[in-house]
Design a protein around this nucleic acid. Structure first.
Length: 529
RNA sequence: CGGGGUGUAGCGCAGUUUGGUAGCGCGUCUGCUUUGGGAGCAGAAGGUCCGCGGUUCAAGUCCGCGCACCCCGACCA
């Protein structure tokens, strides 16, 4: 279909200006001579400094904070550790909800909603569970000016309250399985917060299922881990390592916890989704029993699984670059933005063509936006939509129309090319798929390049210093050895992988990296958010 | 929760050392000229100087106590 991409990047460099000039320029140096004479070169540089994003290489966490604010995803709320999801950011969450919810429904789950307030006595029923969550629980102790008889916690997760309800709902094997999910907000009073990745209140989904047998519950646990893997890799274009959490990292109250771990562009890990086999722990604590076919009363086996707005942080930190956000087409609220070039000539023709393209693409199911605002120059719009991560940009101007084409810019590669006017829809759809695939490929390549294996603690330390990322090593299973790794390297065990990447799987590590005794597990170690 | 830093117009920052009429750039508004990678000129508006308390004739500036954000550590989806 006549796609030609020619890297039109030369002028872009000039537009951005020297990288050095765009960084901090904290006025400490720049502001001093900003008097009335400070025009010309001074003025120009400061203008770019204001709008630029701190480059990743200069300060990754500054970059992250710049991007999420300049892409208009969030704002800080008046309460410490809390953020507002602005429409641009919330739209991303809605896209995650849509992708996940569809998969949950396809696997037989239904949505319900349980209360935010959880009686203190409920949390206390599962010993490990209370101990795990107590340090980060906010409490309601007073209402209407009177002290409550029993304090109510703002839920950090809902196993207990759901367990108490399941105990009332489940009596017979005929009532099983129960497959329920809820979309909710939860609270965890973390000491240190970071927008999207760790906030005091966050949004998530938590699935809670009850089954007649261990086998079935375990299958459910793995099936949902698969659902997360599918969604995160295919829709968010983020490659992940699946695996089982070590006992010290597992969910408080679970028998086994599984996770998918994603790698950010600074090499740090983020747990992008988690699935627990809870055994009969909550069933015993809450008395969730059913009469089985053999007329025996048995506890149910439960699972729970969750993914949160933390995913938004992953999207930003896996795909973003120095120009801002880069969104995978499948979840981009706007997939294509059309920017008409409105000069003095041919205004009518250009606008008509732009509107026609808009209608065409919309009819074809593409999430398209037409920005025909006057008073913003095309170049300004180019930069703006790149910062916001829109996957494709279509430029329509007099020159394009004369040639019977439109100019298309790709956010992921920053290349520009042409599409014939009569083939825009098919061309755009193909390109959206290419962008999606390319983002995954690039992330996968990055992941592979920052993945290694270590025989000893010294190896691990060395690798973390030099190339960062994930390091696979053997482990004897002793918590003390795991703790030693953390203490010495600041890297934590991420999970014990279900599958090991090709270039590392040649020789499973036979010995524990710390004590040298026989290894009974392979473990991913990484510094983590 | 400990150590360090920051808080002044929508945004980015000077001004705080040595107390004395609130500043600059970008953005915003108006007008004209512009429009293929963050346009130019002219004019204008815009401030509880994070909050509370104190010292002083006078506090953005000095003192005390809070709060928020950022960075670094101990705890975590």
């Amino acid at each position: 279909m006549g796609l030609q991409m020619d890297g039109t990047q030369d002028n872009r460099q000039a537009a951005t200006g020297p990288r050095e000039a765009t960084k901090v320029v904290t006025g400490k140096e720049a502001g001093a001579d900003k008097g009335k004479s400070g025009k010309g070169k001074e003025g120009k540089e400061s203008k770019e400094a204001v709008q630029a994003i701190t480059p990743q290489a200069v300060d990754f966490s500054r970059w992250y904070l710049d991007v999420i604010q300049k892409a208009d995803l969030m704002d800080y709320a008046p309460v410490r550790g809390c953020i507002v999801f602005k429409p641009e950011g919330y739209a991303l969450w809605e896209a995650c909800q849509a992708g996940l919810d569809r998969r949950f429904k396809e696997t037989g789950h239904r949505n319900a909603y349980f209360p935010t307030l959880i009686p203190a006595s409920f949390l206390e029923k599962e010993k490990e569970h209370v101990e795990g969550f107590n340090p980060e629980l906010p409490w309601v102790t007073e209402a209407g000016g009177e002290k409550l008889e029993e304090p109510l916690a703002l839920r950090p997760t809902s196993e207990t309250i759901i367990g108490s309800m399941y105990a009332q709902w489940i009596h017979s094997y005929r009532d099983l399985p129960v497959l329920i999910n809820q979309w909710a907000n939860v609270f965890r009073w973390e000491k240190r917060t970071l927008p999207f990745l760790r906030t005091t209140e966050f949004l998530w989904q938590e699935g809670h299922t009850a089954h007649a047998t261990e086998e079935e519950a375990r299958a459910e646990t793995m099936r949902m881990l698969g659902v997360y893997t599918d969604f995160v890799q295919n829709d968010l274009a983020i490659p992940v390592f699946r695996g089982q959490k070590t006992p010290s990292e597992k969910f408080a109250g679970a028998v086994e916890t599984y996770s998918i771990e994603a790698m950010m562009k600074d090499g740090k890990a983020v747990q992008a989704g988690t699935s627990h086999y809870l055994g009969t722990n909550f069933a015993e604590s809450f008395g969730i029993r059913f009469l089985d076919q053999d007329n025996q009363l048995r506890p149910v086996h439960t699972t729970s699984w969750g993914a949160s707005t933390r995913l938004l942080g992953c999207i930003v930190m896996v795909h973003g670059d120095d120009r801002g956000l880069v969104l995978p087409p499948k979840i981009a609220p706007t997939q294509v933005v059309i920017i008409p070039i409105l000069g003095a000539q041919e205004r009518e023709a250009v606008l008509n063509a732009a509107h026609q393209l808009y209608d065409q693409l919309r009819a074809a199911g593409v999430r398209v936006k037409l920005d025909d605002r006057e008073g913003f120059r095309p170049g300004w719009k180019f930069n703006e939509y790149e910062m916001r991560g829109v996957p494709l940009r279509i430029e329509v101007g007099p020159r394009d129309l004369a040639a019977g084409v439109v100019t298309v810019g790709r956010r992921d590669t920053l290349e520009k090319g042409q599409l014939a006017l009569n083939a825009v829809t098919t061309g755009v759809k193909a390109m959206l798929e290419e962008v999606q695939a390319n983002l995954f490929r690039k992330a996968q390549q990055f992941q592979a390049e920052h993945t290694s294996d270590a025989e000893t603690l010294a190896d691990l330390e060395q690798l973390l210093e030099t190339k960062g990322g994930f390091v696979l090593a053997g482990w004897c299973g002793e918590a003390a050895c795991e703790a030693k790794v953390k203490e010495q390297t600041k890297a934590t065990s991420r999970n014990m992988p279900l599958e090991i990447p090709g270039h590392l799987s040649v020789h499973p590590h036979a010995h524990c990296l710390v004590c040298g005794r026989p290894a009974i597990h392979q473990v991913w170690f990484a510094r983590a958010y």
